[in-house]
């Protein structure tokens, strides 16, 4: 069980690392949103699942309630993250930011 928790946390950290590196390396504003909004959501999902599992190990009714509560964070993040991303994109669109295009491909 502990091994599973460690695996979840490490993969979550890896996703967060991908998100952070993506935010730095991506060119242009709109492309930066992709790793920021979505890889971070995935990282939260994995890490919080791992934490909820670890909390469940000495099983009791209290720890079950607490794990449900921890998992509620995941539920809320899954609802709110697309909304926040969309809101930022909308602000960028209305401010008239141009999006970075790959000129080589377009020719």
């Amino acid at each position: 069980m502990n091994l599973l928790v460690v695996l979840f946390l490490l993969v979550g950290v890896f996703f967060f690392l991908g998100g952070a590196i993506g935010i730095i390396r991506m060119p242009g504003f709109y492309t930066r949103l992709h790793p920021a909004g979505i890889l971070d959501t995935m990282g939260i999902l994995l890490m919080v699942t791992g934490i909820a599992l670890y909390n469940l190990i000495p099983f009791s009714f209290d720890s079950l309630l607490l794990s449900i509560k921890i998992f509620l964070i995941v539920f809320f993040v899954f609802l709110s993250s697309p909304t926040a991303t969309h809101s930022i994109v909308d602000a960028g669109m209305r401010a008239g930011l141009r999006h970075w295009t790959n000129k080589k491909r377009r020719g």
């Binding site: 979550g12 967060f16 998100g19 952070a20 935010i23 730095i24 504003f29 930066r32 949103l33 920021a36 909004g37 971070d40 959501t41 990282g43 939260i44 890490m47 919080v48 934490i51 921890i70 964070i73 993040v77 993250s81 926040a84 930022i88 602000a91 960028g92 401010a95 930011l97």
Partner: peptide, 30 residues
């Protein structure tokens, strides 16, 4: 992510960085 907050070319880039930091903070608090 703080790099993006400090040097981001537009205001919205900074906002993206702040959002990323916030989502890491949730896990950190747990």
């Amino acid at each position: 992510s703080l790099y993006r907050v400090l040097f981001g070319p537009t205001v919205l880039d900074r906002l993206v960085g702040v959002n990323a930091i916030g989502s890491k903070t949730v896990v950190l608090l747990l």
